[in-house]
Design a binder for these strands. Structure first.
Length: 888
RNA sequence: GGGCGGCUAGCUCAGCUGGUUAGAGCACCUCGUUUACACCGAGGGGGUCGGGGGUUCGAAUCCCUCGCCGCCCA
């Protein structure tokens, strides 16, 4: 006998361990099985599971379990990425907290060794958390972006791109993070609106004939100014173009140039030009052949290109000093408050500087073309479709991708420099040496590039590097392209786009056929969860409180496409209750001998009730299958909820009770067998979403009746394939009538306050032959569920009985002695009014010649029937109301 | 400034290609210890589907427009 409730705390770890030990997470070896593969979006190795991971991985697990049960060779390949900046930050912080040296003191080799040490200790955190969710990843294939194999892939890709001239070294402005002293990509820059100032500076003309005023939000950059630009058509400045101003403080003559970049509407119309510290100015500088004067060092402190008294100052101190000096010189023409957008590093949070450095770039615009085409042509499909727009938008405006980072943790760039700076890009140092020897005619000292690659450079290879590429492995042949990628829209640019570019370029095929974009999880009030707001929900705490299944079901049911998920505890609790409901339904079945029958054929059952539930089960199976095949996760979950609770538990089980306790041995046996069959189907259908409780019920009902013909886990059982022939419209109609008769009857009783203990008869006043037969046959069911003494036909409703109409049948409850006549009159009047409104609406429709002429015949017919039914019902109730009024 | 998404019951959301009396869960009210389940059962109240136009015999659903709210890009 089952316990009263399911205990996730003990069952979950036990079941997970058993699944894993059985090897069920690995794809089947069956060569005939169609492959279905998913690669996990690798979480940061520093990470711990947040609710977004929980959603994303639940959906992947639902898919992979579903396809596995459908007989596919289902592979869910897990792993983590090395998360360059994030990981380096964690370890540096740890070193500092322990009072240890900084990474620079420690030296590169020792520091990297420390990071590996850290990874060995803490890197498995998120992986273990995924297991608690029930993720059925094939852990034997787990990968890490810095694994040897994946690193070899990175080197190969780098070298090949270089040789194809799609990767090159260039000196240009990058987004420089002075906190980490590294370049970061455009995508890692957050534009934040902040309070700031416009400082208006006067630059004296060199010939002493006057001054020109420029405004800036970054005064310190004036130390690197090389020009002042005015609009070529700006009347005010025509005579000054070609002249020079003498830059205050620096005392450098700089030219006044004409460039359309200067906006005559803004400020004075003149703008200072600092090509080494501003992206727009850089372009202006190029057009006018201006020099680049960088005045910062890697820490954004003032360097030796500035006057001595500024050197070594932090950029913000320098700003202050520049402003003070201008004021002292009498050249400060005004200060204006302003709100403006300032770039910040998304990891460091400090203001990012445009900074002139040598970096490696990928010609993303070239790689993007086939990646755009693949989505245009449908080789890869986004679900929901509209995310394609986001993808196209970015891909069509793509900029060169800066892939080098001034970090130590990551894939070191496979480029070596000779004594003269000549670069050798090769997969190994040996090969670089060989090339160098050939060139120089002797062995020379080679110095490897200090930098590492952007983490996304390696995670962009994830779908194929994890399968063994560049080796031509069996896995690669079998599982690439992968089938579905499940990820959040926030990394369409970061990751999806790069996998598309690199995947197509290096394998000739798209990395995945379908990209399912999941929603973003927010707190109950719709705010993005963040540690600083203190509104984060820890998925593991939720698992502790409600069980993994409840959390999974909640996330699945709420994963409605393209929207935010506002997660609230009551919802999770509700779905925990849903699990308990199923558990108790199974318990009921167990107590009532609902055992699987040998050779049970759902198509052959006789009792209408059983035929009905078989049909409902088939309908549900079809709907759930179709939904899951289409990434309609919420639809699948809601179908299951409705079927299990509102159909199976509320009606089937209740209606089955009389049969199960009845004298008709054949009907009883059939009902027991049917119930057991339905339960088995339900467990399978629900398993992808609620794997633990279903697996446990599967095990606990294993020896209930005939063997299943599959003695393994539920997770490896065959997915139900139930055809439409199992649906019997006649049974639907019969059971529908019975359910309506009971529901409406209950409504009447409740509204009229008929005591629960009362056992009136249910009178069939008016009904068709078939309907009368149905109600007669169902008399025991109705008697029990409606709490009536009997069901019998009468010629006319007796005085004081309460009539109600369902499906054209007039029924009545003779409960005169219990009721308050006023209450009944009110009830009847309300019913009549409702019907009158319906009649009105429908009659109006049918009275419209356009409607009758243009609407499809079946819609017109439907309305005619509705009108007739409503009119008949109304007439019956009206006469009852009249009698009642006369009586009272 | 451009793009996207949302606005349906007190709350969270369904409602797909136009025809339902506009649904569910939670919350609320009434009743209930009927041997699966109080993490339950039965019943009930509650919505002019953001505003305004339009297309149509018919619009929560399609089109236009406006208004908020949110996100992304500049």
């Amino acid at each position: 006998m089952l316990d009263k409730t399911f205990d996730p705390k003990t069952a979950e770890p036990r079941l997970y361990a058993a699944w894993e030990a059985s090897g069920a997470f690995a794809p089947t070896d069956d060569p005939a099985a169609e492959p279905f593969s998913i690669v996990i979006p690798p979480p940061n190795v520093t990470g711990s599971l947040h609710i977004g991971h929980a959603l994303n991985n639940t959906l992947q697990d639902v898919l992979i379990r579903f396809e596995r049960m459908r007989g596919k060779a289902a592979l869910w390949l897990p792993g983590t990425d090395h998360a360059g900046i994030a990981t380096q930050m964690v370890v540096e912080r740890q070193l500092a907290a322990q009072g240890n040296q900084s990474r620079r003191d420690l030296g590169r080799e020792d520091f990297v060794a420390k990071v590996w040490e850290w990874k060995a200790q803490s890197g498995g955190t998120i992986v273990n958390q995924l297991k608690r969710l029930g993720a059925s990843c094939d852990w034997s294939r787990e990968r890490f972006t810095l694994d040897e194999g994946l690193s070899a892939a990175v080197r190969k890709v780098f070298v090949q791109l270089y040789k194809e001239k799609l990767l090159y070294r260039d000196k240009r402005l990058v987004n420089w993070d002075p906190h980490f002293q590294t370049a970061i990509s455009d995508l890692e820059v957050e534009q934040r609106e902040v309070e700031g100032h416009f400082w208006h500076f006067a630059y004296p003309l060199e010939d002493g004939s006057g001054e020109i005023v420029v405004a800036t939000t970054r005064p310190e950059t004036m130390l690197g100014d090389v020009a002042v630009a005015v609009h070529p058509t700006d009347e005010r400045y025509q005579h000054l173009i070609g002249k020079c101003v003498r830059l205050p403080i620096v005392n450098r003559p700089v030219p006044i140039v004409a460039d359309e970049y200067a906006d005559p509407e803004k400020g004075s119309g003149a703008v200072k030009i600092t090509p080494a510290h501003d992206f727009n100015d850089f372009a202006v500088g190029k057009r006018h052949n201006l020099p680049l004067i960088s005045v910062f060092d890697d820490f954004a402190k003032i360097n030796d290109n500035a006057p001595p008294e500024y050197r070594g100052l932090d950029r913000f101190e320098a700003r202050k000093k520049v402003v003070e000096t201008f004021e002292a010189l009498g050249l400060l023409r005004g200060i204006e408050k302003t709100r403006h957008v300032v770039p910040h590093g998304d990891r460091s949070g400090v203001v990012v500087e445009p900074y002139l450095t040598d970096q490696w770039y990928v010609a993303a615009d070239v790689l993007a073309q086939p990646a755009i085409k693949a989505v245009e042509e449908g080789a890869t499909v986004f679900v929901p479709r509209h995310w394609e727009k986001t993808y196209f938008e970015w891909m069509r405006n793509i900029q060169p991708w800066c892939v080098s980072r001034q970090l130590w943790w990551g894939h070191r760039i496979p480029a070596w420099y000779g004594p003269d700076g000549k670069v050798f890009v090769e997969e190994t140092e040996d090969e670089a040496r060989r090339q160098a020897r050939e060139l120089y005619g002797r062995d020379v000292d080679l110095r490897q590039d200090e930098d590492v690659l952007d983490t996304w450079f390696s995670s962009g290879l994830w779908p194929f590097s994890t399968l063994g590429w560049p080796e031509k492995t069996d896995d690669l042949r079998r599982f690439y392209p992968t089938h579905t990628l499940v990820t959040g829209f926030d990394i369409i640019f970061f990751w999806v786009a790069r996998m598309m570019m690199q995947g197509i370029h290096f394998t000739g095929e798209v990395p995945f056929k379908r990209v399912f974009i999941n929603a973003l999880v927010r707190d109950a009030s719709g705010a993005k969860m963040s540690k600083s707001k203190g509104n984060v929900m820890d998925p593991l705490e939720l698992v502790d409180e409600f069980g993994a299944d409840a959390l999974r079901f909640t996330l699945t049911a709420m994963s409605g496409q393209a929207r935010d998920i506002k997660l609230a505890k009551p919802r999770i609790e509700g779905y925990r209750n849903f699990g308990t409901k199923l558990w108790n339904a199974t318990r009921f079945c167990q107590m009532n001998g609902c055992a699987r029958a040998e050779g049970f054929d759902p198509a052959a059952v006789k009792a209408p009730l059983n035929r009905w539930i078989v049909g409902e089960t088939a309908r549900t199976a079809q709907a759930v299958t179709a939904a899951l095949a289409d990434c309609g996760f919420d639809e699948a979950a809601n179908q299951l909820y409705r079927f299990i609770w509102n159909r199976f538990c509320d009606w089937y089980v209740e209606l089955a009770k009389p049969l199960l306790n009845g004298a008709d041995a054949a009907a009883k046996a059939e009902t027991q067998a049917t119930t057991a069959w339905v339960l088995d189907v339900v467990l399978k259908l629900l398993h992808p979403v609620m794997p633990y409780i279903t697996e446990e019920l599967w095990a606990q009902t294993a020896d209930l009746g005939a063997p299943r013909g599959h003695d393994g886990f539920l997770m490896t059982a065959r997915w139900p394939d139930l055809g439409p022939e199992l649906i019997d419209p006649a049974a639907d109609a019969e059971i529908g009538l019975i359910i309506e008769a009971i529901s409406e009857g209950r409504s009447v009783r409740a509204e009229l306050n008929v005591p629960n203990s009362a056992r009136p008869s249910l009178l069939i006043v008016e009904a068709g032959e078939a309907q009368r037969r149905v109600l007669d046959a169902a008399a025991p069911l109705i008697a029990q569920l409606l709490r009536v003494a009997e069901v019998k036909s009468v010629d006319a409703a007796p005085e004081g009985s309460i009539p109600y109409v369902v499906e054209g049948v007039t029924l009545a409850l003779p409960v005169a002695e219990f009721i308050d006549l006023a209450a009944e009159r009110a009830r009847l009047a309300k019913e009549v009014a409702g019907l009158a409104a319906d009649i009105d609406r429908t009659a109006k429709k049918l009275g419209n010649p356009d409607f009758v002429a243009r609407a499809p015949e079946e819609v017109v017919e439907e309305n005619r029937e509705r009108l007739a039914d409503a009119e008949a019902a109304k007439a019956k109730l009206e006469s009852a109301l009249a009698r009642l009024t006369a009586a009272g």
